[in-house]
Design a protein around this nucleic acid. Sequence first.
DNA 1: AATTTTATGTCAGCCTTGTTGACTTTCCAA
DNA 2: TTGGAAAGTCAACAAGGCTGACATAAAATT
Lengths: 167, 167
Amino acid sequence: MNDASGSGSEGLLYLTDEQLRKGIEAMFFAYRGFTADPDKILQEMGFGRAHHRALHFIHRTPGTTVNNLLTTLGVTKQSLNRVLRTLVDEGLVESRVGNRDKRERNLRLTEKGAALESRLSEAQRRRMRAAYRAAGPEAVAGFRKVLEEMMDADMRRRFQAGKEGSP
Amino acid sequence: MNDASGSGSEGLLYLTDEQLRKGIEAMFFAYRGFTADPDKILQEMGFGRAHHRALHFIHRTPGTTVNNLLTTLGVTKQSLNRVLRTLVDEGLVESRVGNRDKRERNLRLTEKGAALESRLSEAQRRRMRAAYRAAGPEAVAGFRKVLEEMMDADMRRRFQAGKEGSP
DNA sequence: AATTTTATGTCAGCCTTGTTGACTTTCCAA
DNA sequence: TTGGAAAGTCAACAAGGCTGACATAAAATT
């Protein structure tokens, strides 16, 4: 199962267990870095990573419903509700009764919520921008490609759905 | 701050906020996929992700000390200790008093621990292998490059340290 | 019109995994 | 011999997952 250095049949020599393990570790360490900057900001505001995720996706799809957010985030409604309630209570998110379907709640960021989201996002983008710059355009394309392949199929579909019309 | 589609000064046109945001989301969804398979196994065994991380790094550096593991994992000793204790109690990890320094504990996997680690790792590697295969060698190189750039500097150093002699 | 389903919210309670703070034991090294 | 590092332990707490049960309103179906 382990092919330390041999040239595989079709240029697949890079797929040794050791290489894969390094990839796994890289993913672990990188994700830590990825969340480090927003985490600092969140902590001083008394929020957590869960709040950040909610803010991010409400920003991304204004007017989204609770159910929608639920499946995107992959948590239970009780878990999301707790987060959402504090965000509404603190005046960061607005929850309005739906037009067509009055059972639904349409979620959007308030000005205050948008401000925090922007601050968090900017911190995270700063790091990603630096990483992208240092790695170069081709590396970025590869990065994105591998990440997409790593997603669960249904999430990949959801993710790729918002691709074409990225004006 | 937003350059929707313009060709930047030096081919940096890909660094729009929108592109960066997509990168952020990709990271989020991919990490979920990345942990999904081991998580399933862990749950049916009554362990959590923290146990997996400990097993992984003890496997990677047998005989490592608690302090070493502490800085690698980036958690407090109390937090790690709880995880470590259950692993020792369940007979997955052996904690032996150090030779030179008897204050230290040298950690290694038992046969049982190695078996679980291998099972978890194989599940994770299976997904990563599939992603690597689908994305191709160049994408993989870029993926690794960006991930390394995304790490905190000290973690990047630690990570890159185990690179040369990877046979 | 009556019934069922859906979307959401909420209460209660549990688990994992992170945190701080205080304190002890061991034992190396200056 | 004494200071400090390494490790462990106890207690208390918080975030953020989870399940289960139940309430309400609105929509959809029969």
